[in-house]
Design a protein around this nucleic acid. Structure first.
Length: 471
RNA sequence: GUCCCGUUCGUCUAGGGGUCUAGGACACCGCCCUUUCACGGCGGCAACACGGGUUCAAAUCCCGUACGGGACGCCA
């Protein structure tokens, strides 16, 4: 049998990082075993459903590079099949009609709470005859759970987990309006799609027992389960918006690379010895249930950033420039010209080594693309009467050089420092940095000068000289 | 309240009875490199939740306690 995993998101308008990890693990396992990875959209809640919301999920998967092996299936489309199964169960006596109104049920739960009993449905209609049904109430269909013994789930992550059958309630499988519930739909779809391995969040562990009731009643083979611990925020609570970015789209917009996310998410809850940097190819080779941890992990934004710096540094220059374009546009309102493109290509080795995210990279790239429009406070301190001569002299020296290569610039700056400034290179470089970039931090200046070229370099120095003279 | 799960440095984790004076990574601190910032190099700080067992020997196995998390919908 081909190993088949699945990712069944409900279209909520965003793809939570936790779901992204679930998708990644399922994808990895399918690739590792040479099996299949299927997508199913859990869109049975029609009120909340929208095409855009579905697209957000699909976009997220595409960005992460998780290709699936089917046409994304709609759970809603399988509605009739779910209903048929419910009726089948009813006919077999494995399910029954319950005529409780929602009000009656909540009353029952209230009462149970007060008395300290479990709040599960008390099976009051399990053995009653339909003739006792009150008027005007459309029944729901509930599954009949066994009353004795225990169900054991051999979870690939959690180990053997045992629950008494009588703790499982007779859950609703078909609503009073005739629509199937999630519990029924997942089981039927997973079975029909030939899902062999169900990997999902820990929060579904309890559901597993109830869902297994359906597998057992239908005589279907149950899948192998693996329940992943949840991802928490720094404060230990379920990761949510108040902790910072949680949607995969947000991470994209913050300038993280997909390979970073894959590596980080993989390591969050899965480990292979001391390996930290794991390529996707390696991950496919190594991924297994053994490496999955049992406890919830806190999301660490600092570590993510560090990893991203690593992958940025490794990334291909042309690809980085492609990825950078939208950031230049949205953050700096820059559209790359031919000259800009050339400068970035020349400076990318220098730039990418320094940046942690594409947002950082865009900001630094700006130094190559834009003439400074203002000088930062620290830059202003470098531009005064004391450095005016230095800048004027540098301008002349650069003017006379036939070609501003890194070596030539370096040589010129050093000998100027030796002759006029007691060998203090910083006294040459810091004013030059301020003049060229408008800041006190920048990539290697000799590289910058070489990339900017004679005309642009001298023009920027001249602007700084004018600025000083106006003071 | 009921049921289920978890607990190793601040964080992610390695560890599956002796090799653990508990290893790695991020963060933090210090030094070096250096024209700045960053990178890089070197070094440092820092953890087996607690209490009982089992055993010659426990971070590793068992039980309990505490704490944390999750589930208890005609949502998915």
């Amino acid at each position: 049998m081909t190993i088949t995993t699945r990712f069944p998101p409900s279209p909520t308008g965003m793809m939570h990082i936790g779901n992204a990890r679930t998708a990644l693990f399922n994808w990895l396992y399918a690739r590792h075993t040479g099996g299949k990875f299927l997508i199913r959209i859990e869109d049975t809640d029609r009120a909340r459903h929208s095409e855009e919301a579905v697209q957000v999920i699909l976009d997220g998967l595409a960005w992460l590079g998780l290709a699936y092996d089917n046409m994304p299936e709609s759970q809603f489309a399988n509605k009739q099949r779910h209903i048929d199964v419910a009726n089948d169960l009813l006919a077999k006596g494995m399910a029954y009609k319950c005529y409780c109104s929602p009000e009656e049920l909540s009353e029952m739960r209230e009462q149970a709470k007060v008395e300290g009993r479990p709040t599960a449905y008390d099976r009051r209609w399990r053995d009653r005859d339909a003739s006792e049904a009150p008027d005007g109430i459309e029944p729901v269909i509930r599954i009949k759970a066994k009353l004795d013994g225990y169900m054991t789930v051999n979870d690939q992550v959690q180990g053997d987990v045992k629950v008494a059958y009588n703790h499982l309630d007779d859950m609703i499988i078909l609503r009073s309006d005739g629509t199937p519930t999630y519990m029924l739909a997942v089981v039927v779809d997973d079975h029909d799609m030939g899902i062999t391995h169900v990997m999902r969040g820990d929060d579904h562990l309890n559901n597993t027992f109830r869902q297994n009731l359906i597998y057992e009643a239908m005589g279907w083979e149950k899948p192998i389960y693996a329940h992943l611990p949840l991802i928490h925020g720094p404060d230990g609570a379920k990761l949510s918006k108040r902790h910072g970015a949680v949607g995969i789209r947000e991470f994209q917009e913050l300038g993280y690379l997909p390979e970073t996310m894959r590596n980080y998410l993989l390591k969050l809850g899965w480990a292979h010895g001391d390996n930290e940097i794991i390529s996707t190819e390696e991950a496919i080779k190594l991924f297994d249930f053994n490496g999955i941890g049992k406890s919830a992990a806190k999301f660490d934004y600092a570590k993510l950033e560090n990893l991203n710096a690593h992958y940025m540094n490794e990334a291909d220059n042309e690809r980085l420039i492609d990825l950078l374009s939208p950031f230049l546009k949205t953050h700096h309102d820059i559209i790359l010209t031919d000259i800009g493109l050339k400068r970035l290509m020349a400076g990318m080795d220098e730039l990418k080594e320094r940046a942690k995210t594409l947002v950082d990279l865009a900001a630094e790239a700006t130094l190559f693309l834009n003439t400074p429009s203002e000088y930062s406070e620290k830059a202003q301190k470098q531009l005064n009467g004391g450095t005016l001569d230095t800048l004027k002299n540098l301008s002349n020296i650069f003017e006379k050089l036939t070609k501003l290569t890194t070596e030539a610039v370096d040589e010129a700056c050093r000998s100027y420092a030796n002759e006029k400034l007691e060998g203090k290179l910083g006294k040459v470089m810091m004013p030059l940095r301020a003049a060229l970039t408008g800041t006190d931090k920048s990539p290697n200046l000799t590289v910058m000068v070489a990339i900017l070229g004679k005309e642009e370099t001298i023009s920027r120095i001249q602007s700084a000289i004018e600025y000083i003279e106006k003071q």
